[in-house]
């Protein structure tokens, strides 16, 4: 099974999907990576020559993705908290940060807003 960065993928996985499986890579970033390496958007991982896989891995290694990206996110929240801002406080309380009503649905905030946010 072809290996990119830290994971192996089935041969039939789209390269674009494989790249987007890493935290910190979305549509915009993946399409740019593909363009840089002359890979068309429908290419499957299994069709790539091994050199291309190595090139992709090398490119991803130099990028701020996965745990680095998650740490950046946590640092941002921590910074807000340390400054004592309202946004920082709301994060700590697990409540919406941007003025949403809290009468009924705040599930997203409940799920995500915390100082040790996972991603």
């Amino acid at each position: 099974m072809p290996f990119i960065y830290t994971a192996s993928f089935t041969e039939t996985t789209l390269v674009k999907k494989a790249l987007e499986s890493f935290y910190g890579i979305g549509k915009d970033v993946s399409i740019r990576i593909l363009a840089r390496h002359y890979i068309h958007p429908l290419a499957k991982v299994g069709a790539l020559p091994s050199q291309k896989l190595l090139d992709l891995t090398a490119e991803l290694t130099g990028m701020k993705i996965e745990n680095d990206k998650r740490r950046e996110l946590r640092d941002n929240i921590q910074r807000l908290r340390d400054m004592g801002t309202y946004r920082g406080r709301r994060h700590v309380m697990g409540l919406p940060v941007r003025g949403q009503n809290t009468r009924s649905q705040i599930n997203t905030a409940r799920r995500l807003n915390m100082v040790q946010r996972k991603g």
Binding site: G94, T102, R103, S104, Q105, N107, R110
Partner: peptide, 12 residues
């Protein structure tokens, strides 16, 4: 009607 937000992990 609910007057308090749902508990953590609870789905409405």
């Amino acid at each position: 009607g609910t007057f308090a937000p749902p508990k953590r992990g609870e789905r409405t």
